[in-house]
């Protein structure tokens, strides 16, 4: 579904490339985990995929369509297909849980409807189902700022589900959570991956967590892919290659 060809990115001409010659394919239904040290280029890679960051060179294909060339409305339409969850959840703190989840519909609606918060019954139902899916049924009117970290990430996942994506990107979605909560969130993502057939591409810090949940692991070091295989083959030597 997604193909990345010789992707490269540097933030300024004075700095080194953060990503150098990344080649990667993601197939529908996969649960891919990206491993790597801080600064290896994980966040940049993930943000290049939905073009929150513009790469300098290389190509990106989404179902054979070149997405580097997409302009305004086409880019927005593509982004609807690609959900994203974040390390710091990136919710609107002062607003309610339901309002935050309905943000997932912003790619489908015109501005006036968004401004007036004029959603159809179907859309509200979709948001409520997403909340139920992540275990937060009944939390619609709660304020985000009153929630715990784990609950916040669940709202983040519900927001992504509400946009009805085919792929969910995750930029270290469990790195700010305690180990038990992190595992629960990973299980939830696995469930969504298996039952709703939504592909996952997620970066993670914790090697054990990556091994127990991923179908495939990508190791990144200094902006290059140094490992791209099943978690079973990720032995000590390979780990050293990623983390040394």
């Amino acid at each position: 579904m997604l193909a990345i060809e010789s992707l490269a990115k540097r933030y300024s001409k004075k700095e080194d490339y953060v990503l150098k010659d990344i080649n990667l394919e993601v197939k529908q239904g996969e649960f891919v985990v990206i491993l790597g040290t801080s600064g290896a280029g994980k966040s940049t890679l993930i943000r290049c995929i939905n073009r929150l960051i513009e790469p300098n060179s290389g190509q990106l294909y989404w179902y054979e369509k070149n997405i580097r060339k997409l302009k305004k409305n086409d880019l927005r339409r593509y982004r609807r297909d690609v959900g994203m969850i974040f390390q710091e959840y990136n919710l609107i703190e002062r607003l309610s849980v339901l309002t935050n989840v309905l943000v997932g519909r912003f790619g489908y609606l015109n501005y006036l409807k968004i401004l007036l918060q004029n959603y159809s019954e179907g859309e509200i139902k979709l948001a409520q189902e997403a909340l139920a899916r992540v275990g937060l049924a009944g939390y619609e009117t709660a304020k985000v700022r009153d929630l715990s970290g784990g609950q916040r990430q669940r709202v983040g996942i519900a927001r992504a589900l509400t946009q009805e994506p085919r792929l969910i990107l995750g930029d270290e979605p469990v790195s700010s959570l305690d180990p038990v909560t992190a595992e629960k969130i990973m299980s939830l993502l696995t469930e969504i991956n298996q039952k709703q057939k939504i592909t996952m591409l997620i970066s993670i810090h914790n090697v054990e967590l990556a091994k127990s949940f991923a179908n495939r692991i990508i190791g990144i070091k200094h902006g290059k892919i140094v490992y791209n295989d099943s978690p079973d083959n990720l032995n000590k030597k390979m780990l050293e290659r990623i983390y040394s």
């Binding site: 929150l52 339409r77 593509y78 974040f86 990136n90 943000v103 790619g107 983040g156 992504a160």
Partner: peptide, 14 residues
């Protein structure tokens, strides 16, 4: 953070 998240769902700048 939240600006990035809203952009990522395909929302307009407005």
């Amino acid at each position: 953070g939240s600006q990035e998240a809203i952009l990522s769902v395909g929302a307009s700048n407005l």
